[in-house]
Design a protein around this nucleic acid. Sequence first.
DNA 1: GTGATATTCAACCATCCGGTTGACGATCTC
DNA 2: GAGATCGTCAACCGGATGGTTGAATATCAC
Lengths: 113, 113
Amino acid sequence: MAQPLDTVFSALADPTRRAILAMLLEDDMAVTDVAEPFKMSLAAISKHLTVLAEAGLIARERRGRVIWCKLEPDAMRAASVWMQGFGQFEPVDLDAFERFLEGELAEDRPEAG
Amino acid sequence: MAQPLDTVFSALADPTRRAILAMLLEDDMAVTDVAEPFKMSLAAISKHLTVLAEAGLIARERRGRVIWCKLEPDAMRAASVWMQGFGQFEPVDLDAFERFLEGELAEDRPEAG
DNA sequence: GTGATATTCAACCATCCGGTTGACGATCTC
DNA sequence: GAGATCGTCAACCGGATGGTTGAATATCAC
């Protein structure tokens, strides 16, 4: 598992991690706040964040005792390009994307559903 | 692992499977022919094809004793839309994509490199 | 310095994943 | 029907993955 596409796609394959990315789309967050909506332990979320960081999908920056996580959407570009090579997909419908995100969040964060 | 994005992204996370998809981009192929360029056993390739089929990324059709595999690029659309929601990526550069594919194939199919 | 907060580390566990091999079922050829 | 070919199935193996808990580290507040 060395090639960049491997790590990016495999990071995206987990619904918890996709939910985290969706949360970070709205704003940078501290690790504790990222973990709050999920049922699993903080340590588990910390591991997920490590996976996302190693894929380049997020950056973590320590400020005081808080570690801030922010999205690095550029890491998705190569993967996106790869996929688009397989079909000329229509331009993105952002409304559909938002509905989609809500669905993902609802499935993955029981408090919201 | 039930949500469609899970299966699609995790199918795409393996370089062998991405190489297979790239091969199928050129033409439909029999399982044996798909397996030919790889170093691993036919059974392993058969498993990879099952993963791709369960993700909806390919379809398999038996004709005589040969099973033909063909790309189903529509299965990538939801994943592509999801990713594009994270950044307004530039329109796809197909030349770059082809170079990319060649790189992937070279890395994954030693005979070609 | 003490104590609370934020995050990771380490060890552990169950399950999944990607590969192997050998046997099997199906189909074609003769 | 006999034998070869196509592909999958089943059992197995080692290593990765996703979760847990408890201890450790680092920082803040007092």
